[in-house]
Design a protein around this nucleic acid. Structure first.
Lengths: 247, 247
DNA sequence: CGTTTGGTTGAAATGTGTCAAACTTTGTGG
DNA sequence: CCACAAAGTTTGACACATTTCAACCAAACG
């Protein structure tokens, strides 16, 4: 694989949004032994309680992490876009404390912890990059906490849309202020900590306010500045390397 | 410093709850160059937006991390007990995306990122332990997300008390089911994502239910099993090395 | 001891949840 | 390519957990 090719590898595109890699490091990442597999939509990849010995790289498609309460209420903790490794934390936390599932038909690559440990040992800078990645993961959790805990549904939803568009744009999966967001209203509700009925009304409010358009899985920020204001969105917490993408 | 002494060092006690260290590694940790400082209560250590080049080890006292919304509402994302390094993430995220402040008069030790980087380079297992620590940090955020997003105030509060007692017990700061919890009701409210008035009522409900006692800063779980049930508490997400402490 | 901080109480306002039904889109097999 | 099922979206009415406002009380503190 030459330099031109691995530049387009989803893992590289994603990691390069938060860390600058050398060609050698990129090559090492792309050459990770990976068991590629196609999955259907809404399929669990790992479940809470599982003991795992490999990570799952999302090559194509969307996924989410979630937990369920005793009475069946679900909280989605994160959405994942192509290039991300949603369960990277399992390298050092072998028991899953939450579940991971696909949102759409997806292509994933399974990499053993052994292979990643080995890579980290040989390329300390990659170890640092992966650590940084998990720290940004945590930063997003923190932002979601204030979103869920202290903002009303309208601002909450606006904030989530801002984040998703920003992350999609960072990996080159958005044109202007439009991107694919194959997330149902029920899933949005579970991520925002509201009921699906209220999620529906909130989305309608965002539409009425002229801030967004959402048809099928195509999301469009009709008024980006207004949306950012409504959601009090400041991309600092995403710790993107190339800040202009967040502009 | 001999083996007997560094065993009691708060940093070691904390790290040993999640990772088994060799004597040499413990020694290396204890010998970290550290600028010790006493702080008053309610004092910001670092603020959102700051560029930092050192971490803060909490040697004595309690702290919390928080963010504030545009209209002044505060969300506390985590409470920190002696031995923890609340801003460890700053090693790889130099810009603070949240603030850190003391809850009580505290003794902290500032350690430069340089010193930690150096330690990680010389002791890869310590690097792994610190990475693991930040991953558990994130696991706690996830648990708080489902707590805030999907549980009612009563269960939310019960869960938080369970977590704090479990963590305090893990580092040897609890006897039976009692520990110090110098957290005001206003702070609890900001952590639970509810108003301070409702926090007060919720705590009274927990008392009436015979689950807890909370006088001044002394917390007691009067009915540990009942409290765990009320908060749907399962300590898996804390990823403690010695599981019996969570029993 | 007065002053400040934190805790407690009641009443009214409101954002959000629940229930239940109808509507619309999507995907698929005949 | 239609027809049907399944999934997702929308609507209305009502219930309720929680917020807000506005006091008052208790404890901590210099």
């Amino acid at each position: 694989m030459d330099a031109r090719q691995f530049q387009a590898h989803p893992l590289i595109r994603k990691l390069e949004t938060i860390f600058t890699l050398s060609d050698e490091e990129k090559m090492a990442l792309v050459n990770l032994p990976m068991q590629v597999q196609d999955l259907r939509a809404d399929q669990d990849i790992v479940r809470e309680g599982d003991r795992v010995s490999r990570c799952c790289a999302l090559l194509e498609g969307f996924a989410c992490r979630y937990k369920v309460t005793g009475d069946g209420k679900r909280q989605i903790m994160s959405f994942h876009i192509p290039g991300e490794i949603p369960d990277l934390q399992s390298i050092h936390l072998k028991t899953m404390d939450h579940s991971l599932q696909t949102l759409t038909p997806s292509t994933v690559g399974f990499v053993t912890h052994e292979a990643i440990d080995d890579l980290c040992a040989r390329y300390p800078r990659i170890a640092g990059a992966l650590w940084r990645d998990t720290l940004i993961d945590a930063a997003i959790f923190r932002e979601w906490m204030i979103n869920i805990g202290r903002r009303e549904a309208f601002a909450r939803a606006a904030h989530l849309f801002c984040e998703m568009l920003t992350r999609m744009r960072a990996v080159g999966l958005a044109q202007d202020h439009t991107c694919q967001l194959p997330i149902s209203q029920g899933e949005l509700a579970d991520a925002l900590g509201i009921s699906h009925v209220h999620a529906n009304r909130t989305i309608q409010d965002l539409r009425k306010a002229g801030l967004i358009s959402l048809k099928g899985s195509t999301f469009k920020a009709l008024d980006w500045e207004g949306l950012k204001t409504a959601g009090e969105f400041d991309s600092t917490y995403l710790h993107l390397e190339n800040d202009q993408v967040a502009a």
